[in-house]
């Protein structure tokens, strides 16, 4: 399957799951289960940074349109798309290892721990920025700090479940062919 087609399908699936499954779950007022931004975490390594950000913006704005509140998720998605390459460069086991695999996964980042750190940091940044933007309009900062932490926990649980359920085949690519 071509890269473009695969990502278009993923885009649609993540948005649909977010809107019609996760948004219908009312766990608690402090907990909003988010999973859709995993799409950005899964974008290929070799995609250029402006393209990543534009795709992230489109993803956020699509979700915003369904929620009738344009801007919030778009801003959070653009932020994690901007931060992602720095984080990958920090966590990747050796120089140039990102050329060996297509996209970030426990295997390509060299173990479960680096991938978990990668997911945790980006989730906290996404939720933090999203809820700060809401809090800035709304007041009561501590409430939103709790919301960020609890929502991050549930998002991470969802990411782990998704990683276990969906097997992404990662071929090892060498440049010494």
């Amino acid at each position: 399957m071509s890269l473009l087609l695969k990502n278009i399908i993923r885009f649609a699936l993540f948005i649909l799951v977010q809107i019609f499954v996760l948004d219908k779950i009312h766990l608690h007022q402090l907990v909003t289960p988010y999973l859709y931004f995993l799409f950005i975490l899964w974008l290929p390594f070799n995609m250029s940074r402006p393209v990543q950000m534009i795709i992230a913006f489109a993803l956020g704005l699509t979700l915003d349109s369904f929620r009738h509140n344009p801007g919030f998720h778009a801003a959070a998605c653009v932020l994690i798309a901007y931060v992602r390459p720095f984080l990958v460069a920090l966590l990747i086991p050796q120089e140039g290892a990102d050329g060996n695999y297509e996209e970030p996964s426990p295997k390509s980042l060299g173990g479960n721990l680096p991938y978990f750190i990668y997911a945790t940091v980006l989730t906290i940044i996404h939720h933090g920025w999203l809820f700060i933007l809401e809090a800035w309009q709304f007041g009561n900062f501590w409430y939103f700090l709790m919301k960020t932490l609890l929502s991050t926990a549930i998002s991470l649980a969802l990411i782990i479940v998704t990683e276990l359920l969906i097997v992404r085949k990662q071929k090892f690519r060498t440049n010494t062919v």
Partner: peptide
């Protein structure tokens, strides 16, 4: 892009 998002908000 951030500026545009915040402008929308």
């Amino acid at each position: 892009l951030q500026g545009f998002s915040i402008y929308l908000i």
